[in-house]
Every structure is written in C-alpha cells, then in structure tokens.
C-alpha cells in the first residue's frame, strides 16, 4: 500500500517531530533554569509538603514506634555493641531508612501516578531536556527524603546522645543515600506500568535492602554464612557511615562506602538520563 511517495513524507514528518521535541528557543541557553525550578520545586517539593501530615509525620511516627519497641523490648543480657546503648545504635539507621524510603517512594510514586493518569505529557511537552527532567525528579525526591531525615533526626536528638557528631560524614552519607534512592525511584517509576510493579520493587528490593543492612543489628550478630553478604548491600555502607558520623562507631571504611555509593549514583544517573532521552515507556 505504501509506495515511496507515502513513505518519504512520513519519515520527514517524524524526523521533524523528533527534532522539534529536542529543539527549544535559543533564549533558554543550555540550562532552562526556570523550567527546572518549576519542575523541581513546584511539582516535586511543594507537592510533597502539601500532603505534609501523612508524608512527613507518617515516617516520623513509624520511626518513633520502632524506637519505642526497641526501648521496651531490649535485651539486657546481651548488649548489641559493648559500650553503646541499643537505642543510640539503631536511631541513625532508622533516620537513614526514613530518608531512603521517602526518596524512593516519592520519585517512583510520582512517576507511576503521572503515567497512569496521562499527566506525564505535561512534563514532556515542557521545554526541558532529558537531563533536566531526570534532575528534577531525582533531586526533588532527594530533598523530600532529606526533610524527613531532618525531622526524624531532630526528634531523635531530644533523647539520644549524638556527642561525636561529624557534620561532613552525616551530610555526605545522608545526601548520597537520598540521591541514590531518588534516582532508583525515578528509574523504577519509568519502568513500572502499574502500581503492583512499583510495590513489587518496594517490597522485594527496597525494604529488604533497608532492613537487612545493619540498621538494627551489628554485623557481629549475623550468622557466619551471611556476614560477607552484607558487604554487597550498598545501604550497609550508607548506614554505617551515617552512624559513624552520629555516634562514632563504624564497622567498615568510609572511603569504600563513598566509592560504592558514588559509583552507583553515577551509574543510575547515566541510566536515568538515557531512559529519559529515548523516552523509555513514556513516548509512543
């Protein structure tokens, strides 16, 4: 049916369409600052704070519940780490888990929701480059995760002794975790087509990575066979470094931790950039 005459105009049209999408007025220069800010702040961060009660206070309540349960049920016979209070040991992990879970949930849920409702076109139509799109999703989710961390950490500081506070370690590992999970959430959100895809990743990847990471136990407590497996869990390094920054007890090296997290962040950022550039599952 389609001879050369019908094929050629179509090809031209689709090429024109493609180049139109990439093209934007020269006045935007290289970086569309206002577009990025709208995407990052107004769509990402403000949306989060509009649901402040359950999105900020929900993680705070569940973190405090964990602390209360551990405080009541703690084992007087066997201290987790000699010389360190159990609550002092677990609180840094609980704060970081709040950051990680919020950052992941925010990015992934936002993308799945926009895809299911068809609102993703609002972002795709805007003159934003793939990198700006990725950065908007990942950084806004990281910001939301960090604000949960600040809230939980602030509440914990009232009753836990963070005497050996090291700002560079705490900030470094908090920001790296937030970025890692924000990027992971963005990539998972692009991949997931339905809510149960998203919750499968959450239930079978994010929660196990977070809970089996040394948040609640020292690696000495692990059976011999599992002890080396924990070193393959990036969240272990994040929690260990973060804990070192707050209470000064570390079980691994910080530089290895930064290298592992940095490498993963770089890899996920490249993957996410590429996915937005080809329009993976979001362009017909």
């Amino acid at each position: 049916m389609s001879g050369p005459h019908t094929v050629a105009p179509q090809t031209v049209a689709s090429k024109a369409l493609l180049s139109f999408r990439a093209w934007r007025p020269p006045s935007y220069r290289r970086f569309n600052g206002r577009g990025f800010w709208t995407h990052y702040y107004h769509r990402g961060v403000l949306r989060f704070f509009r649901f402040g009660l359950e999105l900020l206070v929900g993680p705070l309540v569940s973190s405090l519940l964990f602390v209360m349960v551990f405080a009541v049920a703690q084992n007087e016979r066997a201290a987790m780490v000699p010389g360190i209070d159990l609550i002092q040991f677990i609180v840094p992990g609980i704060i970081l888990y709040g950051i990680a879970h919020t950052a992941f949930e925010n990015a992934a849920a936002m993308l799945v929701f926009e895809k299911m409702e068809g609102m993703i076109t609002d972002v795709q139509m805007a003159p934003l480059s793939p990198l700006e799109l990725l950065a908007g999703y990942a950084l806004s989710s990281a910001t939301c995760g960090l604000s949960v961390g600040l809230l939980v950490g602030g509440a914990a500081a009232i009753f836990v002794d963070f005497s050996s506070f090291d700002a560079s370690l705490v900030l470094g590992f908090a920001v790296a975790t937030a970025l890692f999970f924000g990027l992971l959430g963005t990539v998972v959100g692009l991949w997931a087509e339905r809510w149960d895809h998203y919750s499968a990743v959450e239930g079978f990847v994010v929660v196990p990575l977070g809970l089996l990471s040394g948040t609640f136990f020292s690696i000495e407590r692990l059976p011999e066979a599992f002890r080396e497996w924990i070193f393959y869990n990036p969240v272990f390094y994040a929690i260990d470094g973060f804990r070192a920054g707050l209470i000064g007890h570390a079980e691994s090296s910080h530089s290895v931790g930064f290298a592992v997290l940095g490498g993963l962040i770089l890899g996920l950022a490249l993957l996410g950039w590429r996915l937005f550039a080809v329009g993976y599952k979001i362009k017909p």
Binding site: F70, R77, L211, L212, R221
Partner: peptide
C-alpha cells in the same frame, strides 16, 4: 517478605544470649 524480614531483624537485634 516484610514480616519475615521483621522476624530476622528483631530476633537478631533483641534475641541474643539465649534470651
């Protein structure tokens, strides 16, 4: 899965010493 993970972390964190 989540409940089994809870079992793992709570017995590792609170169970030691033949409690």
């Amino acid at each position: 899965v989540t409940t089994l993970l809870f079992l793992a972390i709570f017995s590792l964190a609170l169970g030691g010493g033949g409690r």
